[in-house]
Design a protein around this nucleic acid. Sequence first.
DNA 1: CATAGGATCGCCT
DNA 2: GGCGATCCTATGT
Length: 205
Amino acid sequence: MKQMTSSGIVPREFFTRNDVIQIANELLGKVLYTSFNHEITAGIITETEAYAGVTDKASHAYNNLRTARTEIMYRTGGTAYVYLCYGIHSLFNIVTSVEDDPQAILIRGIEPLHGIEIMKKRSGKDLLESKYGNGPGNVTKLLGIRVIDSGLDICKKIPSERGIWIRDEGIQVSGEEVKTGPRIGIQYAAEDADLPYRFQWSRKK
DNA sequence: CATAGGATCGCCT
DNA sequence: GGCGATCCTATGT
């Protein structure tokens, strides 16, 4: 499908498809941007996990659970869903499918691309190695994403105040560089714990 | 109202 | 490999 608009912003139709597994796979190599207080940072998406809606025991929306927190997951594809994990980390997800079908993708890793100095400041590191973008808590730390950003529309570029968007910059991801496996930290999800819904991209040198 | 536990991370041994 | 940090959410009384 066409994923490139004139601005390069990944459009709504990319996210509203009813196939969260496919979208999680296709997000690898896309570039995730944030603009907070006019500070723009970006990273190449390297790891994702799919959460497959009301029948997925690992999903916050399992069994059609609706609460103040999960209500965001019921919005249209292309909406940001951010929540606090272990009282410490903000985890960033992208809602997929259409309204009232709460599928989502957790972004678990980025390779820092733009705004390196800002990311250094956020991480407290003098040297920003690419591995510092590994892990969902580290993604939000480097990009500055917080729980208050839950509900943002990521299908339009808002380079001021608080904005999140994704661009297709033509980065090629070959299938053989992508590892698929079970999701992390969801042992409670019983028979769904072993589903191969995690996608990791290791770029060849 | 009380309580248990989590889609994690980094430091410690 | 183990563990503490840290607080919101969901559930049950």
